[in-house]
Design a protein around this nucleic acid. Structure first.
Length: 204
DNA sequence: CCGGGGATTATCT
DNA sequence: GATAATCCCCGGC
């Protein structure tokens, strides 16, 4: 039986470590009774108030980023460029705004539904590659805002996360961070090498 | 194969 | 009024 990842996994203090350890885990959504699942192959960590690229930099707290201050395991959905939804999982304790952005998964279950949602072919390698494509394929919308990843609408399973070897993990700076100064260079992005669902290498 | 730019809108200043 | 944790298409090499 697949093992759900417990809340204690997300409550820990080091968001960067959690982001790395999440590789290989299985992300599942159950939208209207339809299951979509995939192996997490790419993540990024957003540290708390000293990370300029975080929405919560300097403790900023607004209506949009309120969920970043919620309990570990809470889902934070953010609309980017007016087009793409991104999904984050909150870590650490309440009022410490740290999050993990899930950037890509390798689809496992529900390929046909993903194809319908995205208008692509089920064999299209871009189906769940990149944060915007992933949320579209999995049916993730702001309706999931504030849900936790231990419920039945969305949850995470251990999957292969404990089987990933260090040498299979690639590390880089985060993608698409603009105007964050030196924080844009932090090595907070983790991905599985040689997985075709990992989004592009940093452009700049 | 690579780089540039437009799409599109909630949120912040 | 400007910005943004992106994607896709198109033109050029």
């Amino acid at each position: 039986m697949p093992q759900k990842i417990p809340k204690s996994f997300y409550v820990r203090e080091d968001v960067v470590t959690i982001a790395k350890e999440l590789l290989g885990a299985t992300l599942v959504t159950n939208i209207g009774g339809i299951l979509s699942s995939g192996k997490i192959v790419e993540t990024e960590a957003y540290a708390a108030i000293n990370d300029r690229s975080s929405h919560a930099y300097m403790g900023r707290r607004t209506e949009r980023n309120e969920m970043m201050y919620a309990a570990a395991g809470t889902v934070y959905v953010y609309l980017c460029y007016g087009v793409h939804k991104m999904i984050n999982i909150i870590t650490n304790r309440i009022d410490v705004p740290e999050a993990i952005l899930i950037r890509a998964v390798e689809p496992l279950q529900g390929l046909e539904t993903m194809a319908i949602r995205t208008g692509k072919d089920a064999s299209d390698p871009t189906l769940t590659k990149g944060p915007g494509n992933l949320t579209t394929a999995f049916g993730i919308t702001k309706a999931l805002q504030g849900e936790v990843v231990f419920g039945k609408t969305i949850f995470t399973l251990e999957g292969e996360m404990k089987k990933i070897l260090q040498e299979e993990i690639g590390i880089s700076k985060r993608i698409g961070i603009d105007g964050a100064g030196e924080d844009a260079l932090l090595p907070y992005r983790f991905y599985l090498k040689n997985n075709k669902y990992v989004s592009a290498w940093p452009r700049k």
